[in-house]
């Protein structure tokens, strides 16, 4: 049984890019809010559908979209901004009221699950449950020629955008005023406000950025796999959680490394002929990491997150 190693590497690499991109938003919110925002996967789906609506207009409500009304380089930012706004709305509706009352973290977690269900249902009412896709040829789909492996422009684009956004986020958190601000709020809201930080605004900014990252991931998914439903976030949701637990909660680099690692394990467990126990490999690794290194690969403990 021979394995097409170069092709499987390509498969792993770009899938890893997608996982990482999705997990980044999780990681960012965890680092600022100190909690898992389980509505992230719903925001991800919202991003894809905002993109679809931007691309096709009202057509999407009735039939399959067959033609792009707007160019793809407008559609992607629109999806990011749309998902960012949805994400901020989630913060205001699902988290802010609880935060004001100092509600326990668990309540906020539950509230985020509620927000996810609500968003998915709204999407379903608006767009229906059937699969949707971007019009054929939205983005060149023929493999790049002259290579020994099959890699399509969308895969390259997704990987480049994913890596670019990860890099940008890292710079933002580690090197900018906004990054310091977010890390300070993450550490202690009270101290942050005594330094002049408008904490609510910091939350909104963080949620916007996380939402925009989810939106970008949703667009990439939509374009690459050509299958979007309001429930598209469900399968990624658990992957994303695994990625950040593996990488270290709230660690940007951890989210990236975790994403690529999980993609590689998935792809190579399949490549080695065990697609039937692929998920078992992933969760076995997760289990081992949690036992050996409970903070995850790059986690530095709660005091030090972000």
């Amino acid at each position: 049984m021979d394995i097409n190693v170069p092709q499987q590497l390509v498969n792993a690499l770009w899938l890893g890019g997608l996982y990482s991109l999705f997990a980044l938003g999780y990681a960012l919110i965890f680092s600022v809010l100190g909690l898992l925002n389980l509505s992230h996967s719903a925001v991800f789906a919202c991003g894809a559908f905002v993109g679809l609506y931007t691309a096709c207009g009202d057509e999407v409500f009735t039939t399959t979209c067959t033609e792009l009304d707007r160019p793809i380089w407008i559609v992607i930012p629109a999806a990011m901004i749309g998902a960012g706004i949805v994400s901020v709305a989630v913060d205001r509706v699902a988290f802010w009221p609880l935060r004001k009352r100092n509600a326990p973290r668990m309540n906020q977690l539950i509230s985020s699950i509620g927000a996810a269900a609500l968003l998915v249902n709204l999407l379903q009412i608006q767009f229906g449950a059937a699969q949707q896709r971007f019009p054929f040829g939205s983005i060149p789909n023929d493999p790049v020629s002259g290579l020994p492996v099959v890699i399509t422009p969308i895969q390259i684009t997704a990987l480049v955008i994913a890596l670019g956004l990860m890099f940008a986020l890292r710079i933002l958190v580690k090197r900018t005023r906004l990054g310091r601000e977010m890390r300070t709020v993450a550490f202690n809201e009270r101290v942050a406000s005594l330094l002049g930080v408008n904490v609510d605004r910091t939350y909104m900014t963080a949620f916007f950025i996380a939402g925009a990252l989810a939106g970008a991931a949703g667009m990439m998914y939509g374009l690459a796999f050509n299958s979007m439903t309001p429930f598209m976030g469900e399968s990624v949701s658990l992957k994303g959680l695994t990625v950040i637990v593996l990488g270290g909660l709230g660690s940007i680099e951890g989210a990236v490394i975790g994403g690529f690692l999980i993609a590689a394990i998935e792809v190579f467990s399949v490549a080695l002929g065990r697609s039937d126990i692929r998920d078992a490999f992933v969760f076995l690794l997760l289990f081992v990491i949690l036992v050996v290194r409970p903070r995850g690969l790059l986690g530095q403990g709660v005091e030090d997150r972000a």
Partner: peptide, 22 residues
């Protein structure tokens, strides 16, 4: 010549298909 599996909700089947096509 080859049997591959996936799970409900999966979106990426490239690894399995790469094997089969190979």
């Amino acid at each position: 010549v080859r049997t591959e599996t996936f799970a409900r909700g999966d979106v990426d089947f490239s690894p399995q298909l790469t094997n089969i096509i190979n």
